[in-house]
Design a protein around this nucleic acid. Structure first.
Lengths: 334, 334
DNA sequence: AAATGAGTTGTAAACGTTTGCGATTCCTGG
DNA sequence: CCAGGAATCGCAAACGTTTACAACTCATTT
């Protein structure tokens, strides 16, 4: 149970413990044969270097705080997966925190992470208020925001070109022959504003009428999409396609449509946004806009590492291109 | 950028830094008015205690290592969510590691966690070999295994009563009138052996013929379920229901059935195991056996805390009861 | 009034590393 | 044979806490 320490192997090897440290750290100022003797002894004795002691003197923990709204959300989980893999490949470990439902908790966990002396924080925001919420800590530790588009804020982030995503999505619908496309979902956060803008831009270019259906209180959940879609389907259906601002919303729409006997894509084409895992399921096969989650995650840790290791000041806005993934919820009109 | 330290506030308050430490830790041996003065000063100066320094002297990091096969797997993600929430509520933070595809990486990350001086490790195993794989570390740090049933191994774990799950599932099918039930999926790991056993037990009690379809190389993925099901559906369909040992497999079966024009539940009833998020989706609505993931996670961290804080020796096998969640892939025969 | 004791504060060691600097050894060239 | 330097190695400080122990201040008791 007792951990073997530097001092222990030093005594066993008959050298000072500074020498042992140097042998393991690959310092040049040490003899070849002593080094070999020591490293051999080290794994014989089962020595592993104590990271907290090292962190103490080096003033670097090799720890990255990852805060996500909720890790059981598959979007967050995918980002977390790639982030952890990439971070570990570069010698970092991930300290995970759910920022839970409210801003209070989000603030609490970054304060916690600060106390943990993490070298940097990767945060996928709960929403547009996150930036304000934790801005105060931005000068205490490198932070990069992930997935939420902060527009012109003086903070580093990586996000997808949300506007371009909806743009190519509605163009795709247009090419399929659709002329009446309804945009469904949130418009309040920057990310969702941008998505709406892409739709608007495409409509302008193509001479399409813009139609919106949303509520101020809409959230990006299946349940909410379902509720709203039920209301929507009460009215006359004077459109042939729906662009849902979120896959989850699209899934809710799909459910409401099924209940109502509306055939997708027979009577109604549907396209989502995010390409979360669920969309590729049999019977779902939702056509959607892919956010390149893997690239986003690794670029975010790269960016964070650049700040940490090279002390890079200033901020970068890294925008990645989304792509259309065609599945089976859109059909060509004749 | 410079962190304010105990010494700083001590100087500002005109006391020794031991006093400051005592003021914050709630030690009884300090005057009321000095304490109040100091805590006030502390948050004025923005002091946060440095956890790595504290860990150093206390020989306790308040860190729990969480290793999961892949956090983007929704089962792992759900467990991780509840584990993190519960751990944090008790003053612990989570260090997250994906144990990746192979046993080598699994071993690597627990060694890493050891170096990080975590107080304990929560591990959801890749499979039955995990126990052997990391047994060597079991006396260096408290470990509890999560979700994999280790049977009689001298290690603490919390898992569901897998056998009972399949037992109530096939009884349910029986009550619905099914007499020819095919068990589909893996049987090699302890967990899957137990699931098969529950099915066998129910069959014996009910006088049903046992029928198995599986391959030695089957994995619990949608793709694999799909492949196997395609083979299966080549043969004569002399059963009215399938019990899939895994939701993912069930989803694959569903896809193959759809392709083949087999109506679920019209011609074939289907039941899965795990109750992963995807199963509740519209158009899926898979009847399945729920693993109480939330309870599993919090009990696992409770168990780990008991080992850490009370130095509890020995091991506990905590078995939780699964439950049937009826959705729409099973129908009553007439 | 002195002794006792409770209550409060300071001193210093300890946790396990890394690393600058000085000390030692050894080799090399003049 | 000796000076000089390179190659190794040890010493000790430092990182920011916690905590046992000593020390001090008062009030209380005898």
């Amino acid at each position: 149970m007792k951990n073997v320490t530097l001092k222990d192997v030093a005594k066993a090897a008959g050298v000072s413990y500074a020498t042992v440290s140097r042998a393991l750290s690959g310092s040049p100022q040490i003899g070849r044969e002593t080094r070999e003797r020591i490293v051999k002894l080290c794994d014989e004795m089962g020595y592993t270097t104590n990271y907290v002691a090292r962190s103490m003197v080096k003033k670097k923990t090799d720890l990255i705080g990852l805060v996500v709204p909720s890790i059981d959300n598959s979007f967050d989980a995918e980002l977390a997966y790639y982030a952890e893999m990439s971070a570990r490949a570069h010698g970092y470990n991930i300290m995970l925190c759910n920022s839970g439902p409210d801003l209070q908790q989000e603030k609490t966990v970054v304060k916690l992470l600060l106390g943990r002396q993490v070298d940097g924080i990767l945060i996928v925001p709960q929403g547009p208020q996150t930036y304000e919420n934790i801005r105060a800590y931005a000068d205490q530790v490198p932070i990069v925001f992930l997935s939420e588009n902060l527009r012109d804020q003086p903070q580093s982030y990586v996000a997808t070109d949300n506007s371009h995503g909806t743009y190519i999505g509605t163009r795709y619908l247009y090419e399929l022959g659709h002329r009446d496309i309804l945009y469904f979902g949130r418009r309040q956060s920057t990310t969702h504003q941008l998505r709406a803008e892409g739709y608007i831009r495409a409509c302008r270019e193509l001479g399409l009428e813009q139609r919106f259906f949303n509520s101020d209180f809409s959230s990006s959940s299946i349940a909410n999409g379902y509720q709203l879609a039920r209301e929507l389907f009460e009215r006359e259906m004077d459109y042939t396609a729906i662009f849902a601002s979120t896959d989850s919303n699209a899934l809710g729409i799909m459910k409401a449509a099924d209940e109502r006997g509306i055939d997708i894509p027979g009577q109604l084409s549907l396209i989502g946004f995010d390409n979360i895992q669920m969309t590729s399921l049999p019977r779902i096969e939702l056509t959607t806009i892919e956010q390149p989650k893997r690239d986003m995650a690794v670029q975010a840790v790269d960016m964070l590492r650049d700040k940490i290791e090279n002390g890079r000041q200033g901020y970068i806005h890294q925008i990645l291109l989304p792509s259309l993934v065609k599945r089976s919820t859109c059909r060509a009109l004749d």
